[in-house]
Amino acid sequence: MSHTAHIPSHRKPRRSASKLALRAGVAGGVLSTIAVAGAAGPASAEPVTETIEMPTLGSLGTDLSSAVAASAEASQQEALGQSLEAQEAAALQTAAKEAKKAKAEADRKAEAERAEKARQEAEAKAERERAEARAEAQARASRDSARTQLSTTSASSQSDSGSGSSNDSGSSAGSSSESTQVSSGTAASIVAFARAQVGDAYVTGGTGPNSWDCSGLVQAAYAAAGIDLPRISYQQSSMGTSVSLSNLQPGDVLYWGSRSGSYHVAIYVGGGKYVGAQNSSTGVVERSLDWDPPSGAVRLL
């Protein structure tokens, strides 16, 4: 016999096995119940039961469907936003290309207009230059003709003067005739030279051959007749003898201002007219005394 056979056991009594009950409701939304019963004391004690309520499968399915729908809607909204952004970017890019194209076309048209305007201006300038060249050629031909005629007239005057000096009449009569003829020939030379320059340009300080100022023209006209005059207008008007405007003769020097302080001079050419280098707008012109009445006149012949 075992030496422990009569020793009572000191182990605690076994507890009864726990019980677990799970009740699940399907598609009806019935709450599931899990019952767990455990004996807290001896086998003869009352079982302890605990109930835990769990969500139904139907509720889980609804929540999952809602979440999936919300996620799908969010994805759709994001995709729509990205699509709109892409469309806006494409529209901006297209607008930029169109604006660039329009600007290039406008620049091309503006350049074409500038080129056309420049071409027209160049043609107009060329036409003006051709017209000026023709006018200058005609004026030069006229001046050459006048100078040729002037030379012929001067030679004829000198010949007549020689013939008069050999006349058998008295010496005093011959001297008077020679003086008159020489004066007439000199005045004609001055007038012819002045008229030959009509149409030339006016340039301050100009002394020819194609541009003059007022005193430069008077000096050159008298030089063509062999008479030296000062260069300045008030010096020219201070020479010779003062004559009234009602007793003018061709070749007389007209002046504007006072005789010793004149600011403009011209040459009387007969017929109530004068030739003078007026200004840069008109150049050398032949005008009536009434157009710009002079202040006085002097006779140098």
Rank of each mutant, 00 (worst) to 15 (best):
residue 128 R to F: 10
residue 129 E to A: 15
residue 130 R to L: 13
residue 131 A to H: 06
residue 131 A to D: 09
residue 132 E to R: 13
residue 133 A to R: 13
residue 134 R to C: 00
residue 136 E to K: 12
residue 136 E to W: 05
residue 136 E to R: 14
residue 136 E to C: 04
residue 137 A to F: 08
residue 138 Q to I: 09
residue 138 Q to L: 14
residue 139 A to H: 11
residue 139 A to M: 13
residue 142 S to E: 15
residue 145 S to F: 13
residue 147 R to M: 14
residue 147 R to H: 13
residue 149 Q to N: 14
residue 150 L to A: 15
residue 151 S to H: 14
residue 152 T to Q: 15
residue 152 T to H: 15
residue 153 T to E: 12
residue 154 S to Y: 08
residue 155 A to T: 13
residue 156 S to W: 12
residue 157 S to H: 10
residue 159 S to M: 08
residue 160 D to F: 06
residue 162 G to P: 00
residue 163 S to G: 07
residue 163 S to E: 12
residue 163 S to N: 13
residue 165 S to E: 14
residue 166 S to M: 14
residue 167 N to V: 00
residue 167 N to L: 07
residue 168 D to Y: 11
residue 169 S to D: 15
residue 169 S to L: 13
residue 170 G to T: 15
residue 171 S to A: 15
residue 177 S to Y: 11
residue 180 T to L: 05
residue 182 V to I: 12
residue 182 V to K: 10
residue 183 S to K: 08
residue 184 S to A: 10
residue 186 T to K: 10
residue 187 A to H: 00
residue 189 S to T: 11
residue 189 S to C: 02
residue 194 A to I: 02
residue 194 A to G: 07
residue 194 A to F: 06
residue 196 A to M: 05
residue 197 Q to I: 10
residue 198 V to Q: 08
residue 199 G to S: 07
residue 201 A to F: 02
residue 201 A to T: 03
residue 201 A to E: 02
residue 202 Y to D: 05
residue 202 Y to I: 03
residue 203 V to H: 00
residue 205 G to T: 05
residue 205 G to Y: 04
residue 207 T to Q: 09
residue 207 T to K: 08
residue 208 G to E: 07
residue 209 P to V: 09
residue 209 P to K: 12
residue 209 P to T: 12
residue 212 W to Q: 01
residue 214 C to R: 06
residue 215 S to Y: 06
residue 216 G to L: 03
residue 216 G to Y: 01
residue 217 L to V: 02
residue 218 V to T: 11
residue 221 A to N: 03
residue 223 A to N: 15
residue 223 A to D: 14
residue 224 A to I: 01
residue 226 G to I: 11
residue 234 Y to G: 03
residue 235 Q to L: 05
residue 235 Q to K: 12
residue 238 S to H: 03
residue 238 S to F: 01
residue 239 M to Y: 09
residue 239 M to I: 06
residue 241 T to Y: 05
residue 241 T to H: 12
residue 243 V to C: 05
residue 243 V to S: 03
residue 243 V to M: 03
residue 245 L to S: 04
residue 247 N to Q: 14
residue 249 Q to F: 08
residue 252 D to A: 03
residue 253 V to S: 00
residue 256 W to K: 06
residue 257 G to V: 07
residue 257 G to R: 05
residue 259 R to K: 14
residue 260 S to H: 10
residue 260 S to I: 06
residue 262 S to F: 04
residue 262 S to D: 06
residue 263 Y to M: 10
residue 263 Y to K: 11
residue 263 Y to I: 06
residue 263 Y to P: 07
residue 266 A to N: 07
residue 269 V to S: 04
residue 269 V to I: 09
residue 270 G to A: 08
residue 271 G to F: 10
residue 271 G to L: 09
residue 271 G to W: 11
residue 273 K to R: 14
residue 273 K to A: 05
residue 274 Y to T: 00
residue 276 G to F: 08
